[in-house]
Amino acid sequence: MSESHDNEHDADMVPSEPISNPGLPEHLPRPTDVYPEAERRAERQVAGMFGLAGVLFFAFCVFYFVVDKDDVFLGWSALNVALGSTLGFGLLLIGLGAAQWAKKLMSDHEMVEMRHPVASPPEDRAATLAALNAGISESGFARRPLIRNTLLGSMGLLGLPAIVLLRDLGPLPHGQFETVWKKGMRVVTDVSGAPIKPGDIEVGQLINAEPAILFELDADGERVLHGTEALQAKAKAAVIVVRMRPEDITPSKRSANWGIDGILCYSKICTHVGCPISLWEQQTHHLLCPCHQSTFDLADNGKVIFGPAHRPLPQLPLALDSEGYLIAVSDFPDTVAPSFPEIARGPK
């Protein structure tokens, strides 16, 4: 908008106001201004609140030493209630006492302060610009492009070390397409690590399972995978094993022999943002993610039938080992866990 248009717009405003400013209303005295007994009562109230707060703070210290950590009061931690209520009510009383003091006893005459213009006076602005100009021209910043440009260039390059220094924040992306599953690894229950036989699973049942390596011990009796490694492995390799009636299942061509008598194994990690999924509706064969309600049809190759997930739930091909326990035929043929930019370029 141009300057002239602005001025026209201002001129359009009707200057005169229908009601003139009647000025500040008259000050009305409070009871505490007029009656000495009201003033003394307010004084007692304020002092009483401050005094009681002091008593509560002392009680806080007594409770700290007297109440046992394990004591229970009405189902709550007695120590927490005792400390919290003495501290809380004490603080509240100080605050309310101060407010009462201000409202009843301090002067309640409204004061008027004039505002100053936010902008500096024009001569100050001119002087600032002049000073800036003098400084810049004395530096020769404009006159000596060689100095200016080399300085700007080096300052720009200073950004590089700052970025390069961050390189070791973490390794480059790797291993996103693989999990710890491999050919012949047993599928074991996630609580006890016990291997699973087809006979252990009834139609309609869902078992939370893990790859056996998560429970394997090395020669010293320590777990092969522990701490972060175990969590990283679990975050991709957790599975669920379900059994449906074989006639209910409509496998795709490639997954026709991935199950055993209606027993199928799917990734437990949602393809949306990676929540573990385990809400199983056995009648409909639907698996619902409790985080964002993506719903997968396990009878139909883990297809997404509702919710924000895009990719079907990856399936783990199953077989039986010589002892009749469930084992993986290979790693997941499809990539598990949430999508990432390179997922379509994967080795699979």
């Binding site: 927490n80 209630v81 400390l83 919290g84 209520s85 501290l87 809380g88 009510f89 004490g90 603080l91 509240l92 009383l93 100080i94 605050g95 309310l96 101060a98 407010a99």
Partner: peptide
């Protein structure tokens, strides 16, 4: 103090 006291009671 009122805000602090209020949050303390919430915590209690």
């Amino acid at each position: 103090f009122v805000v602090f006291g209020f949050t303390a009671l919430m915590g209690a």
